Simulated assay, not measured.
Amino acid sequence: MIYFDNSATTKILPDVLSTYETVSQKIWGNPSSLHNFGENAWNLQEQARQQIAKLFGVKPSEIIFTSGGSEGDNWVIKGTAMAKHRFGKHIITTSVEHAAVKNALEQLKDFGFEVTYLPVDKEGRINPADVKAAIRPDTILVSIMAVNNEIGTIQPIKEVGEILKDYPNIHFMVDAVQAIGKGLDDQVFSDRVDFATFSGHKFHAPRGTGFVYVKSGRKLEPLIAGGGQERTLRNGTENTPGNVAMAKAIRLVKENEAESVKREQAIKERIYDHLSKFDHVKLISGRDQGFASHVLCFAIVGVRGETIVHAFEDKDIYISTTSACSSKKHSEAGTLAAMKVPEDIATSAVRISLGDQNTLEEADQFNKTFDELYAGFKKIIE
């Protein structure tokens, strides 16, 4: 099997799974309990928090555990709205955000908030000048993803941060779910970023784990009210085994990050260069440094995306159409629509998303299989 759908989810690493099982079986106390068994759980979780903070060069108090990216996105957006609604109800984002961001913002419209969706260019990238032009006296939040989950575009986070230095009262959130382990920490954790959201299952941790970076001094109301866990910011009994396992997954990913990114880029380029030889193939992702190393979106024009996915599946190669959160709807990818990609191309688009477990040999096998499938598809498209 060749698994090229890592942006949807990754396989939990054996060592990470072992950690999860060990903590679950041996340290099952509630971290909020006063007895020693609860204190042991609390201490272990705090060690995990400190480990994550050290790996990213931030304070342990700035790491708040969650259940994943969607919760993190919703919390920062709605928590900002709750904390700052007296000062304004205007939010700026892009037209290519993940559904967890877009749908959370659409919900806020029902409560009187206004949302400005910034346009993107032909590569799916915003113009930082558009951010500045969109800022109003009542703007309370700017939310921009670091890496697009459908085509891999890297957004100009640093440039936007420089603009927002002149507006210190505006919260700046980065959806960094697709950025971890991809050599982009200098962007995600730049000086002006206030919040960054992460999801454990994107980097070999258990599902249902995640965390949010919350810069010290930034006001954010809790999305979940409860017993005061996570400094009252994320209430609910902590997922100690999941959080500890997630910290281990991050450490393992970071150990070989530079090598993994280099290999992913080489795999991407080998497939990209091969696909570029075919008349009916439209390459949507770029291969330069403006795009992440692990995402490659392309279309066989005239063949629907789901047909391509299932054809590769029959060969034991797993790719996807767009985002896993929307691909089953058989709809045109939101990013491609925002880029004004023609409908016949958008409905044919598929995504390869690589991980640190993939190899160049798998790329060669993919290219060989593509040749076979393309020969069959020519009956449809010619």
Rank of each mutant, 00 (worst) to 15 (best):
S190E: 09
S190Q: 08
D194Q: 04
D194V: 03
D194T: 05
F195Y: 15
A196I: 01
T197I: 08
F198K: 02
F198W: 06
S199G: 15
S199P: 07
S199N: 09
H201G: 02
K202V: 04
H204D: 08
R207G: 13
F211W: 14
V212C: 07
V214Q: 03
S216A: 12
S216N: 12
R218H: 09
R218A: 07
E221D: 13
E221T: 10
P222F: 05
L223Y: 15
I224D: 05
A225K: 10
G226K: 03
G227C: 08
R231Y: 14
R231Q: 12
T232Y: 13
L233F: 05
L233D: 01
G236C: 05
T237C: 10
E238I: 10
T240A: 04
P241N: 04
N243E: 06
V244C: 01
V244S: 00
A245F: 02
M246E: 05
A247W: 00
A247Y: 00
K248C: 04
A249I: 04
A249W: 02
R251L: 15
R251I: 08
L252V: 09
L252A: 07
L252Q: 11
V253E: 09
V253S: 08
E255W: 11
E255K: 12
N256D: 15
E259N: 12
E259D: 14
V261D: 06
V261Q: 06
V261A: 09
A266K: 11
A266D: 11
I267D: 05
K268Y: 11
E269T: 14
D273Y: 10
H274I: 00
H274G: 01
K277P: 01
F278S: 03
H280G: 07
G286S: 08
G286M: 05
R287Y: 14
Q289Y: 14
F291W: 06
F291N: 00
L296C: 06
L296H: 05
C297K: 01
C297R: 03
C297T: 15
I300E: 05
I300M: 11
I300C: 11
V301Q: 09
V301A: 06
G302K: 03
V303H: 01
R304H: 15
G305H: 04
E306K: 09
I308T: 10
I308P: 00
V309C: 08
H310Y: 15
H310S: 14
H310G: 08
F312D: 00
E313L: 12
K315G: 05
D316H: 13
D316M: 12
I319P: 00
S320V: 11
T322L: 05
A324D: 09
C325S: 12
K328M: 11
K329N: 13
H330G: 08
H330P: 03
E332L: 11
G334N: 11
T335W: 03
